[in-house]
């Protein structure tokens, strides 16, 4: 065993680095979904569409900034701007027009409303951006690479992926934690997450909280998409594959748990990159194996709270 580690230690180090970079993106998407689910109790399938639209919008805004003659560094704030724009426009629109009508319905109906929305947005996205792959990689080229030593060799990594993405994820995680625990609005959101009935009984306007949380969740989904734009080409269907992974994260993490989402994203990201290095065949099923394993031990998810049974 010791032998195996001395032999493969450097490889394991590289896998960790890749894992952290991919975990950052997984976290950004999943945390928004988890937040929305925690507060609204709606599992939002259209979160994947918001991710995709955020990604496409980031590319469009980026191209626009470049054609307007803005310098290359402007591509980074352009990503953020695109995500805010998508979240602020689509978030309230979806919440007001659709979700508001179904809060009192069965969970399955709520879920299907978002599924229907997902189907509609999937085609709408095709109408706007077409089917040819779109890429916008200026931020990655801008930030260059860092060389990581590997034995006598060096492995170049994208600065964007191994430094910027994890940094944004950590800032988001810490920022969210402070916001939820230290500010009034945050505490109100937490209160609704923990016990909606008690919170509304104490005079909290749940509707306002829902609108705010959903808009915020939509912005996080779009930001996840925008941050993925510089490293990958956008094609129809990216929303569909993103949402399945995010679902797995949410169920593993425990509902509404921010830290749980971060830990789960790390486990999935690192698990997958280790799989690519040592057992490539397992890569695809890693998230599901982790999820099933966690739920076997902790049926409420990693950080989930056991709900009191009502009679």
């Amino acid at each position: 065993m010791g032998n195996w580690f001395t032999e493969n230690g450097p490889l394991l180090g590289l896998a960790l680095l890749d894992g952290i970079a991919s975990a950052a993106l997984i976290f950004m998407v999943a945390v928004g979904l988890n937040l929305v689910f925690g507060v609204l109790r709606v599992l939002n399938v259209a979160h994947g569409s918001l991710f995709a639209i955020g990604a496409y919008a980031a590319a469009s805004v980026g191209f626009f900034a470049a054609s307007a003659g803005l310098p290359a560094w402007a591509s980074l704030p352009a990503l953020l701007f695109a995500a805010m724009l998508v979240g602020l426009v689509l978030g309230p629109l979806i919440e007001r027009l659709l979700l508001r009508r179904i809060y009192d319905e069965e969970p399955v109906l709520q879920l299907l409303v978002t599924f229907a929305l997902f189907m509609i947005l999937e085609d709408a996205q095709k109408l706007v951006w077409g089917v040819q792959p779109v890429s916008f990689s200026t931020p990655v080229s801008l930030m260059g690479t860092v060389d990581v030593p590997f034995g006598t060799d060096v492995i170049p990594y994208n600065t964007y992926q191994v430094i910027l993405l994890p940094a944004v994820a950590v800032v988001t995680l810490v920022g969210l934690a402070i916001f939820l625990r230290r500010t009034l609005t945050g505490r109100v959101i937490l209160a609704v997450t923990m016990d909606r009935e008690a919170a509304t009984a104490m005079g909290i306007d749940a509707r306002k909280v829902f609108l705010l949380t959903f808009t915020f969740g939509a912005m996080l989904a779009a930001l996840g998409g925008a941050l993925s734009t510089p490293t990958s080409s956008l094609v129809p269907g990216i929303g569909a594959s993103t949402i399945v992974l995010s679902f797995a994260v949410v169920a593993t993490a425990g509902l509404g748990q921010i830290e749980g989402a971060a830990l789960t994203a790390l486990m999935i990201g690192i698990g997958r990159s280790i799989a690519v290095t040592f057992y490539p065949e397992l890569e695809v099923v890693v998230p599901y194996i982790i999820m099933v394993a966690v739920l076997l031990v902790r049926p409420q998810g990693l950080f989930g709270v056991v709900e009191t049974r009502r009679v």
């Binding site: 680095l17 890749d18 060799d153 492995i155 992926q161 594959s241 690519v276 695809v284």
Partner: peptide
Amino acid sequence: PRFGATDFSAEVTRLLA
């Protein structure tokens, strides 16, 4: 990698090494 994958960073690392 999975059909429809959007990131090949870990694979690129493997190939670089």
